[in-house]
Structures are given as structure tokens and as C-alpha cells.
Design a protein around this nucleic acid. Structure first.
Lengths: 137, 137
DNA sequence: TTAATTCCTACAATTTTGGTAGGAGTTGCA
DNA sequence: TGCAACTCCTACCAAAATTGTAGGAATTAA
């Protein structure tokens, strides 16, 4: 399951993609519309800003805005930043590889192939969908 | 990511599928072979027994054994018991459905379709693979 | 100057995870 | 009958992750 952090972040990005035509979108607007705690949402938006999905403008009439066209933002990249690995076990993660504590030998690990197959099938969906697709733009 | 509980359980089942020809397999054997804590493993095997993946025999020369042919045990069913939902959000889970706290309206949830697509793609892999496939029997 | 906003640091409650401890009950065999 | 090797059961627990909250500082538009 996704953490709420990741889920809220995804929804926030989609909201901004849909409503960002007329200038920056305020965190409070998003929190209202999606039913989220504003303080928690702020910390998520900060993460997205630091990873250059979002820009921000301070002060009155400030808010958050996309730095790239929605059609060039892949869902997989967002999830990797908000949630971490796509893979179900660390030792088959492409972006967050880590040896499993218990695995004596990765090459002979009994569940390795299955884990790779699941990972690739998930990746396919998440790479083929952009923010524009999900926001139906 | 899978919990260690689920990962250990999967490995244990594969081990039993591979080594269960000559009678029950002891928890201590599995723990040794896979590098797991025996007490923790015991509690996982209990779960698998209660869900009728495994049978057990007490006393000397006792241990655990599969109740069905490996080729008729789907990976998806094991993971559902050990880990819970396959879906990334509760509101698209087929077996563990739960309304999302924040979702006002599921039908208009912006990420619903993506979540369904990911779920189905994962399910396809996990339904097509049985214990026999994974254990290479 | 004021209101509205982001930005920053610190803390904290709750839940989940990943176990451990200690022994009771069962069985096969000498 | 007694011992060794197992499963089975209950209870507990520490660490980590998650999901926030609190309180304000800094910035900006009008």
C-alpha cells in the first residue's frame, strides 16, 4: 500500500495540474478540495519542490505551480520520490537497491524472478502514465 | 515493499515445496537454510497453517508440509494472507476494500483509474505464478 | 502596514514491524 | 517409561515508521 504521504502528494499534483492555469495554487486550496491536513500537506509539497516537480511563490497570492508540462511528468518518478522503491524487495529495486539482510546469495534467491516480474509489470504502467493522463488533460 | 513477514513466508513455502518430498520439514531447517529467526518463522508458519496452506505434525520427526500440490497454489493467495491487499490504496482493493479516509467521492477520485491499472497488472503476474513455477518444479 | 502565503524547526502520538521469552503439549523411539 | 525433538501458545516488548501538530519566521502584493 502507498503511504498517505504518497497518496496525498499524488492527489495534490493532479489538483495543481488541473487548476494551475491561472497562477499558483495555494496549499490551503488543495487541502480543502482533497480533505487533507494543511500542515501535513505543506511538508509533502516541500518534498515535491525540493525534487523539482513544483515551484513555489511566497507571500500573498503565492502558492505552488508545476515546473514541467504535465505530459512530461511520469507517475513513476513522482512515486519514487514520495514513496521510495517500486519493487517489493530491496534487492530488485532499480533506484533504491539494497542487499536483503537474509539473502545469502541473490542469484539463487528463490523468489527473485517473481519479484522482478512484479516490479517490471508495475513499472510498465507507471512509466506509461503521465500527470496529463491521470489529470485527463 | 513486502514486509519481512511476507517475504520469509514466501521463502519458507518455496523451501517446503522443494524439500518436502520425504516427509515434514522442520522450522529449524528452514530457518537455517534461509537465514531467519526461528521464533519469528514459527509464527509465520502458524499463519500459513491456519489459512490451510500448510499442515503440521507435532513431536519428533514432525514439521510442516504442503496441503495442496504446488502447481495449484497461486502466489497471489499466499501474499494476500501474509501481507494483505495487493492494491496500493484501500479503496481499489478487491479483497480488503475500505473507503479512503480522505476520499469524498470514489467515482471522481483523481488517482482511482491509475490505482486500478497498477493493481490489475500486479494481479496478472501473481495469479499466473504458482508455487510450482517459483520453486521451479 | 496588513493580510496571506510559504518556509523552517521541533516535537510527539500512534501504529506497524520484527521480533523475544518461556514454557506447555505432542510424538517417536530406545 | 523416559527422553529428545518437535509444534504450539501466550504474553510481552523495543525500534522504526507514519502521520501528523505547534509555533512562528520570512516574504510578498496591494
Amino acid at each position: 500500500m502507498l503511504t498517505k504521504r504518497a497518496k496525498y502528494g499524488l492527489k495534490a499534483l493532479v489538483y495543481i495540474a488541473k487548476n494551475g492555469e491561472e497562477g499558483p495554487v495555494q496549499a490551503s486550496k488543495i487541502a480543502d478540495a482533497e480533505g487533507l491536513s494543511i500542515k501535513f500537506l505543506e511538508s509533502i509539497l516541500t518534498t515535491l519542490r525540493k525534487h523539482e516537480f513544483l515551484g513555489s511563490k511566497k507571500g500573498k497570492y503565492g502558492g505552488y505551480f508545476l515546473l514541467q508540462a504535465p505530459s512530461s511528468v511520469r507517475m513513476v518518478d513522482i512515486i519514487r520520490v514520495l514513496e521510495g522503491p517500486i519493487a517489493l524487495v530491496p534487492c530488485v529495486s532499480l533506484n533504491y537497491y539494497k542487499k536483503c539482510d537474509d539473502c545469502k546469495d541473490e542469484a539463487t534467491c528463490s523468489i527473485n524472478k517473481l519479484m522482478v516480474d512484479v516490479r517490471d509489470s508495475t513499472l510498465k504502467v507507471l512509466k506509461n502514465n503521465t500527470l496529463a493522463d491521470v489529470a485527463q488533460l
